[in-house]
Amino acid sequence: MTAPDPSATAPARPAGPPAIEAVDLTRRYDLDGVSVEALRGVSLRIGQGEFAAIVGPSGSGKSTLMHLLGCLDRPTSGVLRINGVEMSGLSDTRLAELRNQTIGFVFQSFHLLARTTALDNVALPLVYRGVGRAERRERARTALESVGLGHRMGHRPSQMSGGEQQRVAIARALVGEPKVLLADEPTGNLDTRNGTEVMAILDRLNAERGVAVVLVTHEPEVAAHARRQIHVRDGLIELDTGAAEGRP
């Protein structure tokens, strides 16, 4: 997996296998005997440190693709490698570990634990990695500071604005130093100002840390932050602006 890195011009770009490599992914759902094909053969490759946006109307299959890329779901057929690891042969337990170590999630509705402080929310992925409490808190503090919330560590989600909550969620996604950050409509529940701020943080993290960011959105101005746009429609990739560099 040492294909020449397509975006070598970007700063802080580490070498290694592509962050995500999908070949001919399909995903079929059987609902009450009716077979629905959400993805009908999607191939893409996202390099280390790339910033890509998956765009498409609702029902296009972009959420399904996002779940597959995040190893939350398994494809019906096709090959998916995350950071060079083929996922189809992995047990549920190994898959959970893979998510924990290589993927960070940012959701539209934040998904923070209520009645739990920002610091403990951010530290949660490290709990499942078996990191000790003191180290967890230290790393969570650093992550919160990197999203500008060093002064909000003891606050609970209900005491914070939507923008702040999403920044806590970003810090949580980053604390485990993942290879890929998957953001599903990260600005969907935010006003313009907070949305801009969150996107700025994602831009900065991508540029400074070299973490690959895959954004799922239906807003063109949000998608414009990404250097590469992948348009999905009816379970197929309709247009991939980075196809030349991203596909093998």
Partner: peptide
């Protein structure tokens, strides 16, 4: 349920 989904996304295994 949502909390469980989140924990799993963050790497909680079935046994956790």
């Amino acid at each position: 349920t949502k909390e469980i989904g989140l924990r799993k996304a963050l790497g909680a295994r079935q046994r956790d």
